[in-house]
Design a protein around this nucleic acid. Sequence first.
DNA 1: CCACGGCCTTGAGGTAGGTCAAGTCCCGCG
DNA 2: CGCGGGACTTGACCTACCTCAAGGCCGTGG
Lengths: 233, 233
Amino acid sequence: MRAADLPFIRRSRLFALASEQDLAALLATCFVQSLPKSTTPCQQGEKPEFLHVVLSGRVGLFGESPREAALIEFFGPGDAFILPAVMLDSPYLMTARLLEESRLLFWPAAAFRAQMRVNGSLAYGATLLLSSYWRALIGQIKDLKLLSAIERLSAFLLALAPRQTGSVTVTLPGGRRLIAGRLGVTPQSLSRAFAALRPLGVTGSGRNVSISDPARLRQFGGGGVLPDLLGRR
Amino acid sequence: MRAADLPFIRRSRLFALASEQDLAALLATCFVQSLPKSTTPCQQGEKPEFLHVVLSGRVGLFGESPREAALIEFFGPGDAFILPAVMLDSPYLMTARLLEESRLLFWPAAAFRAQMRVNGSLAYGATLLLSSYWRALIGQIKDLKLLSAIERLSAFLLALAPRQTGSVTVTLPGGRRLIAGRLGVTPQSLSRAFAALRPLGVTGSGRNVSISDPARLRQFGGGGVLPDLLGRR
DNA sequence: CCACGGCCTTGAGGTAGGTCAAGTCCCGCG
DNA sequence: CGCGGGACTTGACCTACCTCAAGGCCGTGG
């Protein structure tokens, strides 16, 4: 671990309440590593050996079935994956894959669980993190059950945009294929959904999408059920 | 609060680590109430005033959109709803409705948040609870994205069944309409899904369903992605 | 320069599941 | 006993999305 990592570590909500000495004690058994794109620190079905905290970069969590895999959620700096599996010492329900080169904190699972029991500030930080994840997942389930593909895309784009009036440009957290998985559609359908939103002022190519009139889009999408999705960062 | 409530309170994983004196201090500001079927302690969009813990009975959490409402999850004894909203002091993303007469613990939101900060055993219990909820939600998202309606029903039934060989009878946690919402289909489609599973040995009416050969059903459903869903109880 | 392989888009057609509309069963109540 | 209403089922039809297939676009490498 380098001294330069500390500020990034501090930034995670896991350590929201941790004092300086807390932090030092907690991190005693941890190490930090940079890993290239496409490595998979967690494999669905395996037992966790480490809790991983993203210091920089981006990670995708994928649900896998015999037939296919679907992106469930994007994780970025400050996020811990996959805390519930580590906490309950249960097999991963998802596979994590780095979407770009990323710097990760590795925290041995047993040490993490032990510290959770004795360090209240750590447990508190964990509830903060888990609470925001809960809300993101609930939002996603509501979207899947209540909204059409086009509405889901609309809500997703709006969740990415800073809350403001007037034209905005947002950067997608991944290629179209990943976004499609996140929204629960095929890439083809996502493409059609983008086409359907074009008349409503959604344009752009690649990872940049600009929304000419967020208010209009918002009222179309029924308000967008998605919560602060990435606002937690 | 009655003395008779204490054993039910203790049973919640929220208090897994709490000592006797911890518990007494924590509960100082709480009260317990029995409420009839169909009351809604939480309304989507409102700010939380209380954390609710189910002592007995059953509660449904519903996502609401302008058009319709869908059941997201069933909650039962030991579950706390909706902890993330209380923790983050954010508007509820769901409406809670009692599915039958239930006994609930009411915990003033501000007091709960304050105690979370200072009482490590409480925060630890909260991470336990939130961790199991995370896994249930991930399972549900995976099912929605990767499985067909019939496979989702199959997985759901298997998750309800005790892990054993030979014929099992499970009791659905609600009427068909609720189950349909939980699985993300209409009641009509659920009915058709049940019909489709009949040749595979799924029979029964009302809230009782019997599975003649769970193993056969399991291999059909691709293994059923759902985790311990209700196994956390 | 062209060839090649991702990645995205577009088109055409099929299908799972939604919608609308009966119909049946069951239960409470007069 | 008959009636009325809710819950569930079944049928017929429709549509949103998937599947399969054919291009465009663009970066990399010969």
